[in-house]
């Protein structure tokens, strides 16, 4: 017997990130919790970046998906702490990113923050041709969570999901 909470969590788990639709909110690590309180489903999500404009869409999508699945009342709560880390992207999510031609983040830095005046070094492989010879074009890309790279061998540009 599947509990109401499990069913609600399963539905919430199918909602996708509006900017990286190859990822579910669960794969991205922003879906923190799904609870059922009486007839209210309470879903908790964490913003990836402070100004992430996708948060409003995520909320709307969660409410609509759960309402369509027969849960009449849905409340979406924001959880600010602990802050989202790219380390929370699941292994399945990382595979989905690569399959979609994006480069998955490495481990996020921890501890005191040092100034880095030389370009950030990441050991990346081109998601298209597999070459390890890549160069960063910009630490800021099409969305807040991505850096822009270029493959030196096949010349294709690609997005890298940043470590934070």
């Amino acid at each position: 017997m599947v509990s109401l909470r499990e069913r609600a969590a399963a539905v919430a788990g199918t909602v996708r990130d509006p900017e990286m639709p190859m990822l579910t909110l669960a794969d991205l690590g922003v879906l923190r919790d799904t609870e059922v309180d009486g007839e209210v489903v309470v879903v908790s999500i964490t913003p990836t970046y402070s100004g992430c404009p996708a948060m409003a869409t995520m909320r709307d999508d969660l409410v609509h998906r759960l309402t369509d699945a027969g849960f009449p009342r849905v409340e979406v709560r924001v959880v600010l702490s602990p802050a989202w880390s790219s380390d929370w992207i699941t292994e399945h999510g990382r595979a989905e990113l690569r399959a979609a031609g994006l480069s998955a983040p490495g481990p996020a830095k921890k501890g005191p923050v040092g100034l880095t005046l030389s370009p950030t070094r990441r050991a990346l492989t081109c998601p298209r041709c597999g070459s390890a010879r890549t160069e960063v074009i910009s630490e800021f890309g099409a969305t807040a969570c991505k850096a822009l790279y270029r493959c030196v061998d096949c010349f294709e540009p690609f997005d890298h999901v940043k470590e934070i």
Partner: peptide, 16 residues
Amino acid sequence: AKGVKELTYHRDWAGR
């Protein structure tokens, strides 16, 4: 705590 992660990228950009 969230801002620290973001400002780290800003400071590096400006420094470079």
